[in-house]
Amino acid sequence: MSIRHGLLALLEHGPRYGSQLRTEFESRTGSTWPLNVGQVYTTLGRLERDGLVAQNGEDGAGHALYAITDAGRDELHTWFEKPVDRASPARDELSIKLAMAVGAPGVDISEVIQAQRRHTVKAMQDYTRLKAQALTALESGGTHERDDVAWLLVLEQLIFQTEAEARWLDHCESRLIRFSASAASAPRPATASEPGPDPGPRPATGSEDGAGGAGAGRGGAPVAPGARRTR
């Protein structure tokens, strides 16, 4: 998230001081990404160093004011014109978690999926509640209409994002069910149809994976040595 460009966009409306920028940033985005005043001043310092903003005197109460420069305006317009880069996808903890959960010992991936789904749908419920309130506020014609619209857009982005996540989780679940179904059925015809080399006695040492192993539950059919299958 670009605080730099957010501040430039607010400064385009006229000179402002640090805590004022913080308040306006948060009311535009409904405090979804809270800023502290320190972050605002650090960012202003860098913008000033880069010649994108300049100090612009003080207001009546003695707050140091900052104003956008021509270079800052160019930078801002370039930001609006260029799409946000998606060439290198942000690291996504959930994707990483599910990728790691596939085949992880002692982990029931469907439980991982359901725990996340409950959490994600609950977040959607919360966002939707806020959205309904924002819509009501807009319809009743509040005074901060611009901020209400901006907040609504941010909320709806969160709803779309959680929706995509919930749909993806549904998809993962059905994908995994399909794979486990085909994995469970695949080895059977292979053993039934192919006699293989003279089936020897089952090795006595093969007790460690007996219960869940490929040979289990098949009426004690002899399994060729070395024919141990993984699920």
């Binding site: 994600t120 749908v121 959607m124 419920q125 966002y127 939707t128 309904a132 709803i159 959680t162 929706e163 919930a166 749909r167």
Partner: peptide
């Protein structure tokens, strides 16, 4: 549809 379910309590 999760988006519609999200209107529920």
């Amino acid at each position: 549809e999760p988006r519609f379910a999200a209107w529920a309590d």
